[in-house]
Nucleic acid binder design. Structure first.
Length: 127
DNA sequence: ATGATGATTGGGG
DNA sequence: CCCCAATCATCAT
């Protein structure tokens, strides 16, 4: 397996579909630790109107958590899924990762500090 | 090519 | 809160 930082990343990533490359690259570049974004925002950033399609790409993220798929939550500020699942176990792992970056959720399951959501304006264009 | 399936979302009841 | 149509990359036929 490869190691280090960004060199092996680009090599692994270039093997993926254009859509997935866009999703992963945009996420890596625009959402740093301590911040989160939504499936819809990420979709819009790459010129796609399907938040679900973005979720499809994230669930098969081959380099988690290097590619911070845990920083993508739902538009209603609830946590969303992780590794293709929405069960309690998956959610717990996702929230633990976020908590280690200073991001937390309240009792109703919503983001405690909404200010942490990064608004992404369209950056890339598909096809 | 066609149909089914989601880590969603905004609107409506 | 619950329900539903819209949207679209992927995958199975």
């Amino acid at each position: 397996m490869s190691a280090t930082a960004s060199e092996p990343l680009s090599r692994e990533i270039s093997d993926l579909t254009p859509f997935r490359q866009c999703v992963y690259r945009t996420l890596l570049q625009r959402v740093p630790a301590g911040r989160v974004t939504t499936y819809g925002q990420l979709a819009r950033a790459i010129g796609c109107r399907s938040a679900r399609a973005v979720g499809q790409a994230l669930k098969v993220n081959p380099l988690a958590p290097t590619i911070p798929c845990h920083r993508v939550i739902r538009a209603d500020l609830t946590i969303g899924g992780f590794h293709g699942a929405t069960d309690a176990n998956a959610v717990r792992m996702k929230s633990d990762l976020l908590r280690s970056e200073g991001v937390s959720f309240d009792q109703s399951g919503r983001l405690t500090e909404p200010d942490r959501v990064t608004a992404l304006h369209q950056t890339a264009t598909l096809r």
